[in-house]
Simulated scan of single mutants.
Amino acid sequence: MSLTSLLRGSKTNQKEFQEILREIIPNKKSFQTISGKEAFSKTDYEVLAPYALVKSDNSSIVGIAFDYLARVMLARLVKENRYESYSSITAGGWSDRLIKLLKKTSFY
């Protein structure tokens, strides 16, 4: 089940999940910025990285790529349980290739 379906769903367990999130997620008024500008304002800040994806489906590819990059960066720092950072990744068979690549580059 995807996170989107949990957030938009109408089944009892999905509604319960949504209610838990509503209780624990702070509202945007509770955030402060160093600049004193309103947090999350669309008019007070310059967009440095505009959304330029042609297909909305590409956002999932970007998300997966970010996930993998973050795992590799963390694995470089973590000495114990490095293999766990590569387990349960979406690309399945690619995890073996990723581990071989990392071993060659002394990250592993």
Rank of each mutant, 00 (worst) to 15 (best):
K42I: 14
L6E: 04
N58R: 12
E46S: 15
L3V: 09
A65S: 05
W94T: 13
L3R: 09
E23Q: 10
F107W: 12
L48M: 07
Y83G: 00
S88F: 13
S5G: 00
D44A: 08
A91E: 14
M1N: 13
R8T: 15
L6V: 10
T105G: 07
V78A: 09
K104V: 13
V62L: 09
K28S: 08
S35L: 02
F66I: 12
M73G: 00
G63P: 02
E80T: 15
L77W: 06
K15E: 01
S10P: 05
R76W: 08
T12S: 12
S2P: 07
P50T: 01
V62Y: 07
S95F: 02
E19T: 14
Q14D: 05
M73H: 10
R97P: 00
P26Y: 03
A39D: 03
Y86S: 04
I99E: 00
I61M: 06
I20N: 10
Q32R: 15
T105W: 10
K100F: 08
S30L: 11
S87W: 09
T12C: 03
K42D: 13
Y45W: 08
S88Q: 12
I64P: 03
F17C: 01
R82K: 11
E46R: 15
K28M: 05
S35K: 00
V78T: 14
K11P: 02
F107E: 08
R82D: 05
L7I: 03
A91M: 12
I34M: 06
Y108S: 08
L21T: 04
I61C: 04
E80N: 14
R22M: 07
A65T: 07
R8C: 03
I34P: 01
N27E: 11
S87R: 15
F31N: 03
V47R: 07
E84H: 13
R97T: 14
L101G: 01
T33C: 01
R76A: 11
Y68L: 11
I20M: 10
S106Y: 10
K15A: 01
M73N: 09
Y83E: 14
R8L: 08
Y68A: 02
T4Y: 12
L6M: 12
I99F: 00
D44C: 06
M73P: 01
E19C: 04
Y51E: 08
Y108L: 11
S56I: 15
K104Y: 08
S85H: 13
A39F: 05
R22A: 06
G93M: 06
K29R: 15
N81P: 03
V78D: 07
G93L: 06
E16T: 12
A75L: 06
A49G: 09
S56E: 15
I20D: 05
L77P: 08
R22N: 11
T90N: 12
S10I: 10
L74T: 12
V62P: 01
T105N: 14
G63T: 09
E46M: 15
Y86D: 00
T43V: 08
L101F: 10
A52D: 15
V62M: 01
Q18Y: 04
R71W: 02
T4G: 05
W94S: 13
K79N: 09
Y83D: 13
E19F: 00
L102I: 07
I89H: 01
L3N: 02
